[in-house]
Design a protein around this nucleic acid. Structure first.
Length: 940
RNA sequence: GGGGAAUUAGCUCAGCUGGUAGAGCGCUGCAAUCGCACUGCAGAGGUCAGGGGUUCGAGUCCCCUAUUCUCCA
């Protein structure tokens, strides 16, 4: 719990700071560029054409630019790396926000380099500038970042020369249209540009730290950057160049020279291994080479604008600014949401799921703004898949999933809108002079109804919305969330992280052996790194090699023992291990030193608890069978969303838009138990990932796998990539039983089940319940349901009969009382005691009497409803319409009377009820009631 | 992770500051019809999500749990 929370705060912290930390580098696709030098298309095209009037071999389309970039660097020894998922491996960020993110562990020295040099076109998503999308020429949520990387290999000179060569020769940009920037103090880079490349010194601009110095955080690797800008107005000359002038310059290539390490004190020390990290916005280069006024009109995005325009029956060119913006937003976001779902994100109210939902709803809103009045997201999704399928073929494989998710989410949002419109109509029905900020915020915050729609509808009614009030409420909400973010003690976590960082991957022997000698490499005692521990200490150990399975892939870590003789030979030592986790590839064994002394360097014998391991294995293999059965029975497209394999149960979460029916669950159970009975021999094999995928092995979506993967094969039934431990033969599972099927989030269902020995424990528990019920109901197990149903029926009947009898009794008693009514002028007074009738009965009795006696009747009844509760009294007053006209109100009247009995009461003028706790005072109270009524009515 | 909201008849929902649980649709029966649709009349159908608390009294107020929606991080 603590760990989860701690890491989540870290995500929030880093997510919040990441864009800022990265801001100094790729301003590409994030920087604003509002004005364009040429408003008129034709003139603009003419302006660009002389430079871009390319020889046929020059890249022009987005695909050509991407290919040219990757080819160029591949020819220069770079390994071509496919774009990583938008869902990063790095748990500290929600989405892949920059081209270098997949390589961040390499740059930070936390992971081995895949090659000395690499190049990629990385898909990215950023939402921090979402309000600017569609309004400026080049803000995007989804974009591609071309990059070339050096991991301790080449450095500044090559990076600069190649960047120049690529820009001028391959892309054919005229050197007279280019300007470069360097960090103020980076004389080395400036010299290379000037002497090595031959750039006019006047066109080398020195920039401050804010613009041209990159760091991934307050400490760690950092270094100066150098950027290449495209100059749309070279005729203005080389003097007084201001790169901040967006109307003249656009930055398209950023080179980061990672050459320092910054320590906590802020001091810079040179890095032993210097790195290169670069980024070129694909959409920007496309804009330059295609000579269009903004990124949206490049072939990477424009087809989606056309699709949206056709759906809205509008003409992009003929539209005013607002309409064009809507089309741009739809086009931009359509790429983003298609890619997000393609990478396994599903819409939700948390994390990246929430980002997806927000983008998706913005598309719908802009669609409505353009007049699209029917669902259209699947049409946009299809167009986006078609547009991007060549560069991202996996979109085709995920087509059905993407379209289904879009359809579902759009329908859900339309429901939300409908509900909001209804609520807003209620607000408007009250004919307010203005929609208050609080009302608008409630619609937005609680019901998800967009502010702009509230404004729009209010406007139709000639009303305004208190926007300042809305903002104030919004701020208050943010403050609440911030204030509630508690910081937790992370010291334990830190000690472990520190220890883990100092060690190599632990060698895992537990697939084949359950016992193995090992050496203690590091020790954490009660949360602090320590050289030794004494009996009773809570210890965490890092070993050189281990047979213990470390928690991972959903499977719980092994339990067991470490035993041996302490280094000094004095005493036997014993450690019980109750949890094993994996931190990167280092296994951390947590437990307790039961006996003896333990020190770093000790040689121990590690023994896994075989019974526990067997149970975990049965549950794990059963989980694989469950996934296979789900695919067979429910839907072949079902994908895993998470899983837990414990010793005594298993849990499997999967993507599925509806509940799995009871009959399907039966089928699944039968199928799995059939496979168990067939005694399939498992085959576990390591192979290359491509071969495994070709063989049809099921991989967890969005998961990153190494080159060589472990494939667990139940021949003919299931084949999955899995690092967990499994039974050798399905027969070892014994039995499989589904315990429950529930929903965990929109679109995700959860099945909990038991397998192996755990089934017996589960069944025993159930059996005990059934037997206890059988005893109680005097029925055989098979008859219990019937018996309970019959009893319920009987109970219901009895209750009805009782209520009827009570009513009759009350009426009978009341009828006898009617004779005791006392006339007072035109009025009939009846005050009487009626015991043994509970509240509702007394009420109907009083009302019956009042109706019987007429409009001038005032009836007051009081009594003890329950002989068992001696103190409790109930009072009822029923006044006819003439009595009320005379100024008597049953509610107020009965309240006063009830006070005499130590209670209170109230009701409406014609009928009221009250109660009290002092039965002894009842008769007195009734007498007082009679007297008071006489006074009230006589005075009239 | 933190807020807000919803959960009432088979369905869609109303139920105001605590005081006898309602509507529309659907269902059943009767009338009318050769029969159906329509119509009219009558009726059945509710542990007010579950559990605690406050109160003489809780669908209504408070707390907890579950499920769903929603906003913020």
């Amino acid at each position: 719990m603590l760990r989860i929370h701690a890491s989540f705060s870290a995500i929030i912290a880093l997510f919040a700071s990441a864009p800022a930390a990265l801001a100094s580098r790729p301003r590409i696709a994030s920087a604003e560029c509002p004005a364009h030098p040429c408003v008129i298309m034709g003139a603009h095209a003419q302006h660009i054409v002389p430079m871009a009037a390319a020889t046929p071999s020059r890249p022009r389309t987005g695909a050509e630019i991407r290919a040219a970039f990757l080819d160029f660097y591949e020819q220069r020894g770079h390994q071509r790396v496919a774009s990583a998922s938008l869902v990063p491996e790095d748990p500290t960020v929600l989405l892949t926000i920059a081209g270098m993110l997949p390589f961040k562990p390499v740059f930070l020295g936390q992971a081995p380099r895949p090659a000395p040099r690499a190049t990629s076109s990385q898909k990215c998503i950023r939402t921090n500038d979402i309000e600017n999308v569609g309004r400026t020429a080049r803000h995007h949520t989804f974009f591609e970042m071309l990059g070339n990387f050096s991991f301790g290999d080449y450095f500044k000179s090559e990076a600069i020369q190649w960047a120049w060569e690529l820009s001028t020769v391959v892309f054919g940009l005229d050197p007279r249209n280019l300007v470069v920037s360097v960090f103020r103090e980076d004389d080395e880079a400036a010299a290379i540009w000037r002497d090595g490349v031959g750039v006019n010194p006047k066109r080398i601009v020195r920039m401050d730290e804010a613009d041209n110095f990159w760091a991934s955080g307050p400490t760690g690797p950092c270094g100066p950057c150098s950027e290449i800008y495209y100059d749309f107005k070279p005729e203005l000359g080389d003097d007084g160049i201001d790169l901040e002038d967006d109307s003249r310059f656009i930055e398209f290539y950023n080179l980061v020279f990672m050459q320092y390490n910054r320590d906590a004190g802020g001091a810079l020390t040179p890095l032993a291994n210097r790195n290169i990290d670069t980024g070129m916005g694909l959409e920007r280069m496309a804009q330059i080479l295609q000579a269009v006024p903004n990124n949206y009109e490049t072939d990477l995005i424009y087809p989606l604008i056309e699709t949206a325009a056709a759906l809205a029956s509008v003409d992009y060119r003929a539209l005013e600014g607002q309409g064009q913006t809507s089309l741009k937003v739809i086009a931009d976001h359509s790429r983003a949401i298609t890619q997000l779902i393609g990478d396994g994100v599903t819409a939700s109210n948390l994390g990246r799921g929430y980002i997806l939902r927000r983008l998706l709803r913005r598309v719908v809103r802009h669609g409505r703004r353009l007049g699209i009045d029917k669902p259209f997201l699947t049409a946009m999704g299809e167009a986006a898949i078609t547009l991007m399928a060549e560069a991202f073929p996996q979109l085709l494989a995920r087509r059905e999933v993407i379209l289904a998710e879009l359809e579902r989410e759009e329908a859900r949002f339309l429901e939300t809108l409908e509900r909001g419109e209804k609520l807003l109509a209620e607000v408007l029905a009250a004919r307010p002079s203005q929609i208050s900020g609080a009302q608008a915020f409630e619609l937005y915050d609680t019901y998800g109804f967009p502010l702009e729609l509230t404004e729009e509808i209010a406007q139709e009614h000639g009303l305004s919305v208190d926007l300042a009030g809305f903002e104030a409420a919004m701020d208050a909400q943010r403050q609440r969330a911030k204030a509630a973010a508690v910081s937790l003690d992370l010291t334990v976590q830190d000690a472990i992280a520190q220890v883990v960082a100092e060690h190599e991957a632990t060698e895992f022997r537990g697939y084949a052996q359950l016992e193995h000698p090992c050496c203690v490499l590091a020790l954490v005692v009660n949360g602090e790194p320590a050289p030794a521990a004494v009996a009773g200490d809570a210890v965490q150990l890092v070993l050189d090699t281990t047979p213990f399975y470390g928690e991972g892939g959903g499977q719980v870590g092994d339990r067991g023992l470490l035993s041996g003789t302490a280094a000094d030979g004095a005493e036997e030592l014993l450690v019980t291990i109750d949890a094993v986790s994996r931190n990167r590839s280092v296994f951390v064994h947590s437990g307790r030193l039961e006996r003896g002394r333990l020190a770093v360097g000790d040689l121990l014998l590690a023994q896994v608890d075989r019974a526990c391991r067997r149970r975990a294995q049965a549950n794990h293999t059963a989980t694989h069978l469950l996934q296979a059965a789900l695919k067979q029975v429910v839907d072949p497209a079902i994908g895993q969303a998470g899983s837990l394999v414990d010793f005594d149960r298993l849990r499997f979460d999967f993507h599925c838009p509806r509940a799995v029916s009871p009959s399907e669950l039966d089928q699944i159970e039968t199928l799995i138990n059939g496979w168990i009975a067939e005694a399939h021999e498992l085959a576990v094999e390591e192979m290359e990932i491509e071969r495994a995928k070709a063989a049809g092995a099921v991989a967890m979506f969005g998961e990153k796998y190494a080159e060589v993967v472990r494939v667990v094969d139940v021949p003919g039934v299931s084949m999955e990539l899995c690092g967990g431990t499994h039974v050798a033969n399905t027969a070892e599972i014994g039995l499989f039983k589904i315990v429950s099927e529930t929903g965990v989030a929109a679109g995700i269902r959860r099945i909990e089940a038991v397998a192996g020995p755990a089934v017996l424990a589960y069944l025993n528990e159930r059996d005990a319940v059934v037997r206890a019920l059988g005893d109680r109901f005097k029925a055989q197990p098979g008859e219990i349901v019937e018996r309970v149903a019959a009893l319920q029926e009987e109970l219901k009947g009895t209750q009805k009969a009782l209520a009827a009898a009570r009513g009759e009794l009350a009426l009978a008693k009341a009828a006898a009382l009617a004779a005791g009514a006392e006339s007072l002028g035109a009025f009939q007074l009846l005050v009487a005691r009626l015991d043994g009738v509970e509240g509702a009965g007394l009420q109907s009795a009083a009302q019956g009497l009042q109706e019987q006696l007429g409009a001038g009747a005032a009836v007051v009844l009081g009594g003890q409803p329950d002989a068992a509760d001696a103190g409790k009294v109930v009072l009822v007053a029923a006044f006819g319409s003439d009595v009320i006209a005379a100024g008597a109100k049953a509610g107020a009247f009965i309240g006063g009377i009830a006070k005499l009995c130590g209670g209170g009461g109230g009701g409406r003028p014609n009928l009221a009820q009250a109660g009290g706790r002092d039965a002894a005072a009842l008769d007195g109270a009734l007498a007082a009631a009679a007297q008071e009524l006489q006074g009230l009515l006589a005075a009239d």
